[in-house]
């Protein structure tokens, strides 16, 4: 189980601090696949990366993260190495270029395992089964990354990242570069990985809510570096409470609606710059329900079991 408490991460830049992640608190149950969604630049990748590789210019400002009750030494690059790959792993956004171009994949895997002092023989044997799970032939181990197609590389990296059965897997935009059919295949493989205990919990970062609807158990919506709402997938899709989530969901195309008759609506306005973000609720400027109280930061509170929202209109007052 993963517990994130008040995690705050800024980017140190020449112009000042970019407040990319502010006071994030949430929990992730065993075996839960949590979708992490939001617009570009809302801090979802920052959140994902800060859990595994919090390197400059990212700086850890505050908060802590517990994995199975143990606090992670987030800001300590050396100490975190013991957790990386073993306990927490990542399928990066750049999976297409994630492998050393001048090493055969099998050789690279072995070198990596040996360097991590893993039981090379056992893991390499398990690797064969994993390849079958993602429908890759055994021969890929004797190939160079360039000899694989984009989809194959994506699946190969997926297998590589989960080789040591991590407790937490961060899947960063793994479907973004793929066509719709491969998107579905890859996300279903991820679910199978979870079911086969190749990894325990998953944070699935994406901006594609329709994918999440198919595979995620819960969805966490972020806006401009702050958490907006977290609930089960069903609740987020059918009964969202945060005004941002509502607008976001209503902007999704629906089956059976002809958009030649009715234009698809978006959310007017732009996301604020995080270099000098507005005080209070960062969605205030674009929110149809905003009132004076929104000048204060709304707390991220649980309004019903498993459903948390950061909005003054919800939480205490309403319900």
């Amino acid at each position: 189980m993963l517990q994130v408490e008040n995690l705050t991460v800024y980017y140190q830049t020449l112009k000042g601090q970019v407040r990319a992640l502010e006071n994030a608190s949430f929990t992730l149950a065993d075996g839960e696949i949590m979708g992490l969604a939001g617009e570009s630049g809302c801090g979802k990748t920052t959140l994902g990366h800060s859990l595994i590789h919090l390197s400059p210019p990212m700086t850890h400002i505050g908060g802590r993260v517990l994995l199975n009750g143990q606090e992670l030494p987030l800001a300590d690059m050396q100490k975190m190495d013991a957790y990386r790959f073993n306990e927490i792993s990542i399928i990066p956004q750049y999976a297409m270029n994630a492998m050393n171009p001048i090493r055969k994949i099998g050789q690279m895997t072995e070198e990596l395992l040996r360097a991590k002092k893993a039981d090379v023989k056992t893991v390499m044997a398990a690797l064969k089964d994993r390849l079958e799970m993602v429908k890759l032939p055994q021969e890929v181990l004797g190939l160079y990354p360039i000899e694989l197609s984009g989809g194959m590389k994506q699946r190969m990296v997926m297998v590589l990242s989960t080789l040591l059965d991590p407790e937490l897997l961060i899947a960063d935009e793994i479907t973004s570069a793929l066509d719709v059919a491969s998107q579905k295949a890859v996300s279903e493989m991820l679910v199978e990985f979870r079911d086969q205990h190749c990894c325990n919990s998953v944070i699935f970062i994406t901006h594609d809510i329709s994918i999440l609807y198919q595979i995620a158990d819960s969805i966490l919506i972020m806006y401009a570096g702050q958490l907006a709402e977290k609930a089960s997938t069903e609740t987020i899709i059918h009964n969202p409470r945060h005004p941002y989530t509502r607008l976001l969901i209503s902007a999704l195309p629906e089956i059976g609606v002809r958009y030649s008759d009715k234009r698809l609506t978006g959310i007017p306005g732009k996301t604020p710059l995080l270099l000098n973000p507005p005080q209070g609720c960062r969605f205030r400027e674009r929110c149809p329900l905003a009132f004076e109280k929104c000048a204060e930061v709304p707390p991220f509170v649980e309004i019903e079991p498993g459903h948390s929202v950061a909005c003054w209109k919800e939480g205490s007052a309403d319900a």
């Binding site: 957790y83 990386r84 990542i90 990066p92 270029n97 492998m99 360097a115 991590k116 990296v157």
Partner: peptide, 12 residues
């Protein structure tokens, strides 16, 4: 990217 990936996996 491959260097960053190895770093994220905690390779020495």
């Amino acid at each position: 990217d491959y260097s960053h990936y190895l770093e994220a996996l905690g390779a020495p």
